[in-house]
Amino acid sequence: KLCLVCSDEASGCHYGVLTCGSCKVFFKRAVEGQHNYLCAGRNDCIIDKIRRKNCPACRYRKCLQAGMNLEARKTK
């Protein structure tokens, strides 16, 4: 099974979405830290295992598009 954000090996369902541990922690920190990420490109950066750290804005956008939600952990 692959992470729906970066296509690395998924470690489980986190915040409602099948993700790897790295994307799970990234999403939690992004939401709780209330980061205002900005993409230096055109908001279409490739997010994969190798390049997932290059653009936090696009990675966060991809987390949201996949359906990640901090509240999902509280309902399970």
Results as ranks from 00 to 15, higher is better:
K1F: 14
K1P: 03
L2Y: 15
L2H: 12
L2N: 15
L2S: 11
L2W: 08
C3I: 02
C3W: 00
C3N: 02
L4A: 06
L4S: 10
L4W: 08
V5N: 02
V5S: 00
V5G: 01
V5K: 00
C6G: 00
C6E: 00
C6Y: 02
S7Y: 06
S7M: 08
S7D: 12
S7L: 11
S7A: 15
E9T: 15
E9H: 09
E9S: 14
A10G: 06
A10D: 04
A10S: 07
S11Y: 05
S11Q: 14
S11E: 15
S11L: 14
S11D: 14
S11F: 06
G12H: 06
G12T: 08
C13R: 10
H14C: 06
H14I: 05
H14T: 05
H14P: 04
Y15I: 04
G16E: 04
G16D: 07
G16H: 04
G16T: 04
G16F: 01
V17N: 05
V17W: 02
L18G: 04
L18R: 10
L18T: 10
T19N: 02
T19L: 05
T19H: 03
T19Y: 02
C20G: 01
C20Q: 00
C20Y: 01
G21K: 13
G21D: 12
G21A: 12
G21T: 10
S22P: 08
C23R: 08
C23S: 03
K24V: 13
K24P: 06
V25P: 02
F26A: 00
F26K: 00
F27T: 03
F27C: 03
F27Y: 12
F27P: 02
F27Q: 00
K28F: 07
K28S: 08
K28Q: 13
K28G: 09
R29M: 06
R29G: 08
R29C: 07
R29S: 08
A30F: 05
A30D: 02
V31H: 15
V31P: 02
V31E: 09
V31G: 10
E32I: 06
E32Y: 06
G33R: 09
G33F: 09
G33M: 09
Q34V: 07
Q34S: 10
Q34K: 10
H35E: 15
H35P: 12
N36S: 14
Y37C: 04
Y37E: 06
Y37W: 08
Y37H: 06
L38T: 10
L38C: 10
C39L: 00
C39F: 02
C39G: 01
C39K: 01
C39T: 02
A40F: 07
A40R: 09
A40E: 09
R42V: 14
R42S: 12
R42W: 07
R42F: 15
R42E: 13
R42Q: 15
R42T: 14
R42D: 15
N43R: 09
D44H: 06
D44P: 03
D44Q: 10
D44G: 05
D44V: 09
C45K: 00
C45W: 00
C45N: 00
C45H: 05
C45E: 01
I46N: 12
I46E: 12
I47D: 07
I47R: 03
D48S: 05
D48G: 03
K49E: 06
K49W: 06
I50S: 13
I50T: 12
I50P: 15
I50N: 11
I50H: 05
R51E: 14
R51C: 04
R51S: 11
R51M: 14
R51T: 11
R52V: 08
R52Y: 03
R52N: 03
R52W: 06
K53C: 04
K53A: 13
K53N: 09
N54W: 08
N54C: 05
C55V: 01
C55S: 02
P56Q: 12
P56R: 07
P56T: 08
A57K: 08
A57N: 04
A57H: 04
A57E: 05
A57F: 03
C58H: 02
C58D: 00
C58E: 02
C58F: 00
C58R: 00
C58M: 00
C58S: 02
R59N: 01
Y60H: 05
Y60M: 08
Y60D: 00
Y60I: 07
R61H: 07
K62F: 05
C63D: 00
C63G: 08
C63Y: 01
C63H: 01
L64S: 07
L64R: 07
Q65G: 08
A66P: 01
A66Y: 11
A66L: 10
G67Q: 03
G67M: 02
G67R: 03
G67P: 00
G67F: 03
G67T: 03
G67W: 02
G67K: 03
M68H: 02
N69E: 11
N69P: 04
N69D: 10
N69F: 11
N69C: 15
N69Q: 08
L70A: 08
L70S: 15
L70I: 11
E71H: 07
A72R: 09
A72D: 11
A72S: 08
A72V: 09
R73A: 08
R73N: 05
K74S: 09
K74M: 13
K74A: 10
K74C: 10
K74R: 15
K74E: 15
K74Y: 14
K74P: 09
T75Q: 06
T75D: 14
T75V: 08
K76C: 15
